[in-house]
Write a protein that binds this DNA or RNA. Structure first.
Lengths: 171, 171
DNA sequence: ATAACTTAATTAAGTTTCTGATACAGTTCG
DNA sequence: CGAACTGTATCAGAAACTTAATTAAGTTAT
């Protein structure tokens, strides 16, 4: 007769920290900067965005985004398009090549997680499966609070993003 | 009668990606670089380490670690000590001030998660609580596979680490 | 509509944080 | 002991950022 366990936030925090570290430390074939990967993730998930929007979600200056997008454009991973609704703005969109990088990295993460999940017991896998909707809802609550990119996560695709960098520098 | 749900690795991957992004995007009072925060986390969790060990776990060059530790030392966040067992080596240890930064950031994360968890239903919180041990075991399986820092996570403290950076740069 | 203000992106210059290549002192092993 | 390693440190140059200044397109108020 196991009482219902209370949720240990401390425990959850630790576990999430560890997963974060796991994800971030992924090899990375084509060596792209952290911020760059994060931008590609965002674009692949949310669709075309303005430079300003990217600057906001990646927590770097807008200038940094301009420079990075210029570089990504040279490498054929994103494209710049004029925004029909605003002559000043530029819409950045991932190319197929860019999306492939994002997908590749996600596939690596999934492979790793599959490997680990295979070594769990059936009961453990079920427990995680049962918690998944609740965890997803936490994320959703967060992004709507923040006014994140995809407030209504309805059906299909969506955000993504790992490999995020930054905390800025300088004292 | 709900069948036992199968664990969706894709779903789990997405959720973890989102949490990663949440954690990484935390404000950061005292502005420290990403790698720096990660090093402090590692030291606070695993105890004193050699520069080489840090370089390995943070995935930057040893040179970068040396420079960073020098800077952290100047700021009073870590200390260098000779390694009694090896005259060449240096053991880096966090100071109380350094540990305070790590704890502060963890507290912020916990506060955020608490907020979100409070808005879940009781059943949702229970589901997450029930999954926590399994999730922790996945992390453990991972680090022992990698030969990570704390292979036997026994009792007390331990690793930590979020705020990880790096993927390196350069084409 | 026109002047004054705001917003979006770029450009330029300077800073911080890395990588790569040595240099060197301490260890290990024949 | 001397050769081959290992663990740190240092230095030059490359990346990725930041701040500040510039250009251009929208907005607002008169």
């Amino acid at each position: 007769m196991p009482e219902f366990a209370e949720l240990s936030i401390a425990g959850l925090t630790r576990v999430l920290e560890d997963f974060t570290r796991m994800h971030i430390r992924l090899p990375a074939e084509r060596r792209l900067s952290f911020t760059t990967l994060s931008v590609l993730h965002t674009l692949a998930g949310d669709g075309p965005k303005r430079l300003t929007e990217l600057a906001g979600s990646e927590q770097v200056t807008q200038s940094a985004i301009t420079q990075m997008v210029t570089k990504l454009e040279r490498e054929g991973l994103v494209e710049r398009h004029p925004d029909p609704s605003d002559g000043r703005a530029v819409l950045v969109r991932v190319t197929a090549a860019g999306a492939a990088i994002v997908d590749g990295r996600r596939a690596e993460r999934m492979a790793r997680l599959t490997e680990l999940a295979d070594r769990l017991t059936e009961a453990e896998r079920e427990a995680i499966a049962a918690a998944l909707p609740a965890l997803a809802r936490m994320v959703e609550l967060h992004s709507s609070a923040i006014g994140g990119p995809s407030i209504e996560r309805g059906a299909g695709e969506d955000d993504s993003g790992t490999d995020t960098p930054r905390d800025s520098t300088r004292r």
